[in-house]
């Protein structure tokens, strides 16, 4: 009888989450006639798909590293201030919005800033004689995506890493000082080892976040498919070639695999991080 209570939830999740996931996973291993096949998955290891994958991994890794470095610096600047101060409240609220609010609005924010008629582009051209795009319009390509993605990756790092920094107890610093240690020694010998698992874990989270992002890239890049999510869009909205119908699903399946591996590592690191920080 008790199990009836969770039935609505299980039914809902079954229809709108589990079934769609199975459609993708099963479809990835079927040919157009519905027969089992590995052709779709092996097709991913060559040509345009491999290129899209490499670019997606590059984009995710680059923005994860940028987010980790700048985000942790920003988190440190916030955490070394007053715990209930205006700076902290403003930065955390703003980061909460910017980390979530990727998508179309973010693409437009950067078009207004460094688009062809953007504010910064025009200012540099009119007043300093610098042409941002003398070597081609990179905003709608990989370098542009890295810049735009950083705008939500850095805030996400702040949100994820700030609790870890807050977990550093002042007593530890005092202990180092009373033993005659310097500030550098405190950061090198105490803070860094305690923070490393959280730092790397946050990096993995950032990687997964960039890897699965779609909306920003979709709004920014209307033609061509430089990364995997846009490649999937191509399959989803267009009539596809015979014998290739399920490659879109195979691409989706491979995304799930990458994100699942990254998130599993994240969970492992998180468990290790919680040893000292609670």
């Amino acid at each position: 009888m008790d199990y009836l209570g969770v039935l609505p939830f299980l039914a809902y999740v079954g229809v709108f989450l589990i079934y769609p996931t199975l459609v993708v996973i099963v479809g990835a291993f079927q040919d157009d006639a519905g027969q089992p096949s590995t052709a779709n998955v092996t097709a991913l290891t060559e040509g345009v798909y491999l290129k899209a994958f490499t670019r997606s991994l590059e984009l995710s890794a680059a923005t994860a590293v940028i987010g980790m470095v700048l985000g942790s610096l920003l988190a440190w600047a916030v955490s070394s201030g007053r715990p209930d101060g205006a700076l902290r409240r403003t930065v955390t609220s703003l980061c909460g919005v910017l980390a979530q609010f990727g998508g179309v609005t973010l693409a437009f924010a950067f078009i207004a800033t460094i688009g062809l008629t953007g504010v910064v582009t025009q200012f540099l051209k009119d007043h300093l004689g610098i042409d941002l795009y003398s070597h081609g319009v990179w905003l709608f390509d990989l370098p542009g995506l890295i810049l735009v993605y950083s705008y939500f990756q850095i805030p996400l790092m702040v949100i994820v890493f700030l609790p870890a920094l807050d977990g550093l107890r002042p007593q530890w610093r005092e202990a180092v000082q009373s033993l005659g240690g310097s500030s550098w020694q405190y950061w090198r010998r105490v803070a860094a080892p305690v923070l490393t698992p959280s730092f790397l874990g946050a990096g993995l989270l950032l990687f997964a976040n960039a890897f699965s992002a779609y909306a920003t890239a979709a709004a920014l890049v209307s033609q061509g498919s430089p990364i995997v999510p846009l490649e999937i869009r191509g399959f989803f909205i267009s009539e596809v070639l015979l014998g290739r119908e399920n490659i879109g699903k195979a691409l989706g399946f491979s995304m799930i695999v990458v994100v699942a591996i990254v998130m599993a590592l994240y969970a492992l690191l998180l468990r290790r991080a919680s040893r000292w920080l609670r």
């Binding site: 299980l10 989450l17 769609p20 996931t21 459609v23 779609y214 999510p229 879109g248 699903k249 995304m255």
Partner: peptide, 19 residues
């Protein structure tokens, strides 16, 4: 089950949920 959507990117979910 509740945390599972974090592992299924929206662009992948849309492919499976279309039917």
């Amino acid at each position: 089950l509740c945390l599972l959507p974090l592992m299924i990117p929206a662009i992948v979910l849309v492919v499976g949920i279309a039917p």
